[in-house]
């Protein structure tokens, strides 16, 4: 277990909670919340991987030159990837909410097993 930190393990616990909510809960909104929590955990994990102890934000203001920035700043690459993924998460959340609303309209319930039973 080379690079394990307690923060990584707690992050995995958050991810596990999301998976549990997604699979074991019956309420559709709870399932959506599970997906959202998983998304938080993944985004946070990527940023945790790029953190440098006592690092500064990757912005080169006038007090610092490029060489110093490369030594002192945190990793900007995961930040750039996570930035877009957060906004896309909002888009997919809206898509899931739309589907949930449609399912409610058709079956008059949010209960997933009830919907499975009513389908036939």
């Amino acid at each position: 277990m080379g690079g394990t930190s307690s923060l990584y393990i707690m992050n995995m616990a958050l991810m596990g909670m999301g998976i549990y909510a997604l699979i074991a809960k019956r309420h559709i909104i709870k399932k959506i919340i599970g997906v959202v929590i998983m998304e938080y955990a993944i985004n946070l994990f990527l940023i945790l991987l790029g953190y440098k102890t006592d690092g500064i934000a990757p912005i080169q203001d006038s007090s610092i030159n490029a060489a110093q920035l490369a030594v002192r700043a945190v990793d900007p690459l995961p930040q750039a990837l996570v930035l877009t993924s957060i906004v896309i998460g909002l888009g997919t959340l809206a898509l899931m909410a739309a589907q949930a609303i449609k399912l409610y309209e058709k079956y008059k319930t949010f209960d997933m097993s009830e919907i499975n039973r009513l389908r036939g």
């Binding site: 909002l90 888009g91 809206a94 909410a97 739309a98 609303i101």
Partner: peptide
């Protein structure tokens, strides 16, 4: 896009 989807959720939904 996000404003349009909010319109969609509040009118069509």
């Amino acid at each position: 896009a996000l404003y349009a989807i909010f319109i969609g959720l509040s009118i069509y939904g």
